[in-house]
């Protein structure tokens, strides 16, 4: 195990991944330090979602190495369940558990994975619901909430595990426009509190506001990995320029 850089949170080293004959990740390497906010963007099908899902081992890789907080995700002997409980993840379609109410959704991982008592979990859930401003919806079922509300619950569910980092896989792309900001606001708050975050998104406003670095991907490759001022100032690659002009001009 490698603890030499104690503030290194996520390290992706020459990762390759294929779906059958299609290569979705092509020699990807990336570092995220503690407290950093990284935005990953790129056209659809560029491999961003695959990349983020390999970091907590939801998607296996064919070669390369991924280390999270000194623990190798790609090592077969690693207890992935334990590791995943320390990394929060937010999905494009929220993926709240439909048969549980909001509070139960936030409690499930706490009681079953972290073995917290029911009272502890309940308290934590309430505190988090307050934080995402959904206290009055504590006993509703996911299908009774708007998309934006569901996504905020999903963020609370991730935070309940007191993760050392949070992964966001296009957290706002399934939302109606008027709901995007309520979710982004929660994320901005989180970033300002110092949470290590890796966010796949097209929300360039969000990236400008809080991202330390922007990673641009295309065809499974990381084309650019630059501090956000540099990226928005003058992206080096044509592809990134073209992409930016598309997502910024509307």
């Amino acid at each position: 195990m490698n603890y030499e850089k104690s503030n290194m949170m996520i390290k992706v080293k020459s990762v390759n991944k294929w779906y059958g004959k299609i290569q979705v990740l092509n020699d990807c390497s990336l570092n995220v330090s503690k407290g950093e906010v990284i935005v990953v963007c790129g056209p659809s099908g560029s491999g961003k979602s695959s990349l983020i899902k390999t970091i907590n081992g939801l998607e296996p890789v064919n070669s390369g190495e991924i280390i999270v907080s000194g623990i190798s995700v790609t090592d077969k002997s690693t207890n992935l369940d334990q590791m995943r409980s320390k990394i929060g993840m937010v999905f494009q379609n929220f993926e709240l558990f439909p048969h549980m109410n909001v509070t139960e959704n936030i409690k499930l991982g706490q009681t079953k994975v972290l073995r917290r008592t029911n009272e502890e979990a309940e308290q934590k859930a309430q505190a988090l619901l307050e934080r995402v401003d959904l206290t009055e919806h504590a006993h509703k079922y996911p299908s009774q909430l708007s998309g934006g509300q569901q996504q905020r619950v999903a963020i609370a569910r991730g935070l309940a595990m007191e993760p050392m980092a949070m992964l966001f896989d296009e957290p706002t792309s399934a939302l109606d426009p008027e709901m995007i900001n309520e979710v982004l606001d929660v994320m901005v708050k989180l970033a300002k509190e110092g949470m290590t975050m890796m966010v796949v998104t097209h929300e360039m406003g969000f990236a400008r506001k809080v991202a330390d670095r922007v990673v641009f991907m295309d065809y499974g490759k990381i084309i650019e990995d630059a501090p956000s001022q540099d990226f928005f100032g003058s992206p080096r690659s044509d592809r990134a320029q073209e992409f930016l002009s598309k997502v910024l001009n509307h």
Binding site: K53, S85, G88, M89, F91, L108, V113, M161
Partner: peptide
Amino acid sequence: QAGRAIGM
């Protein structure tokens, strides 16, 4: 995946 992601 959502279930796995919280460590179950």
